[in-house]
C-alpha cells in the first residue's frame, strides 16, 4: 500500500483553500445565511432612511451611519463560519483533518469574500437611496472600503472563533467585537468623510497606513493565538 506516499504533506495553502471551498459550497447549498444577510442589509438601510426622515443628515453623519450598517451586517453574518461547525458538531471533524492554521486561513478567506460582497451591496444601496451621500474622491472611497473590509474580516473571524466556543454566541459576538473593531471603524469613517469632502488621495494616506497596520496586527495575533482557541 505504501503509506509513505500517502503521508500527505498537505501544503497550508492547499488545505486552507479546501476549507474555504467547503464553506462556500455549504453556504451556496443552504442559502440561509446569504438571504438573511441580504434582508438584514435592506432592513438596516430602510431604518436609517426612515430615521432620517425628510430632513436628512449631514454628509459627515451619513459617512458614520454607512459603517454602522456595515458593522451590524457583519455581526449578523461573519460568525456563521465557526458557529455552524459547532452547531452541527463538525468542529472535531475539521480538527481531525486539518491543522489549526489551515482552518484559520480558510475561514478568513471565506469571511473576506463574504464581507466584500456584503459591503459592496451596502454601499450600492446606500449610494442609490440616500441622495445626500455623494462621493467626491472615488479613489479614497474605494481603497477605504477595500481595506476596511479586509480589516473587518480579520477581526470578525478571530472573535467568531472565540465566541463559537462559548455559550451565548449570538449576543456575545457584537459585545466582544465592538471594542476590537472600534479603531477600524473610526478610521474608515474618517476615510469615508474625506472621500465625501473631495480631499486629495494623499490626504488619506494616514488613514490607509493605520488600516494596513491594523490588518497586519490582527492577522498576526490571530495566527499566533488561534491554536489556544481552536484546540481543546
Amino acid at each position: 500500500m505504501g503509506y509513505d506516499r500517502n503521508i500527505a504533506k498537505a501544503s497550508l495553502w492547499q488545505a486552507s483553500v479546501a476549507i474555504f471551498l467547503k464553506d462556500w459550497k455549504s453556504e451556496l447549498r443552504t442559502r440561509y445565511a446569504i438571504s438573511a444577510l441580504v434582508m438584514f442589509v435592506v432592513t438596516t438601510i430602510s431604518i436609517i432612511l426612515f430615521a432620517l426622515g425628510s430632513e436628512g443628515a449631514s454628509v459627515s453623519a451619513l459617512s458614520g451611519m454607512l459603517w454602522v450598517a456595515v458593522f451590524f451586517a457583519a455581526m449578523s453574518g461573519l460568525s456563521r463560519t465557526f458557529v455552524a461547525e459547532e452547531e452541527r458538531g463538525t468542529s472535531m471533524t475539521l480538527q481531525l483533518v486539518a491543522s489549526p492554521t489551515a482552518v484559520l486561513f480558510g475561514k478568513l478567506m471565506f469571511n473576506l469574500v463574504l464581507v466584500v460582497c456584503l459591503n459592496a451591496f451596502v454601499v450600492l444601496l446606500y449610494s442609490a437611496f440616500i441622495s445626500e451621500f455623494v462621493i467626491r474622491t472615488y479613489s479614497i472611497f474605494v481603497v477605504t472600503v477595500l481595506l476596511g473590509s479586509i480589516g473587518f474580516a480579520a477581526a470578525a473571524t478571530i472573535i467568531a472563533a472565540i465566541i463559537a466556543r462559548a455559550n451565548t454566541k449570538g449576543t456575545l459576538y457584537p459585545v466582544l467585537a465592538f471594542p476590537i473593531l472600534l479603531p477600524l471603524l473610526l478610521t474608515v469613517i474618517n476615510g469615508t468623510r474625506l472621500a465625501t469632502e473631495g480631499a486629495f488621495f494623499e490626504e488619506a494616506l494616514g488613514e490607509f497606513n493605520i488600516l494596513v497596520s491594523y490588518i497586519v496586527a490582527v492577522v498576526a495575533v490571530s495566527y499566533i493565538l488561534f491554536d489556544y482557541i481552536w484546540k481543546d
Binding site: 477581526a155 478571530i158 472573535i159 472565540i162 466556543r165 462559548a166 466582544l176 471594542p179 476590537i180 472600534l182 479603531p183 473610526l186 478610521t187 474618517n190 493605520i210 497596520s213 491594523y214 496586527a217 490582527v218 495575533v221 490571530s222 493565538l225 489556544y228 482557541i229
Partner: peptide, 21 residues
Amino acid sequence: AALSAVYSIIAAVTMPFFMFI
C-alpha cells in the same frame, strides 16, 4: 481561562491604535 487570556491579548493589540487615531 484560555479564551479570556486570548481576548485580552487581542484587545491589548488593538488598543494602541487609538493613540494614533
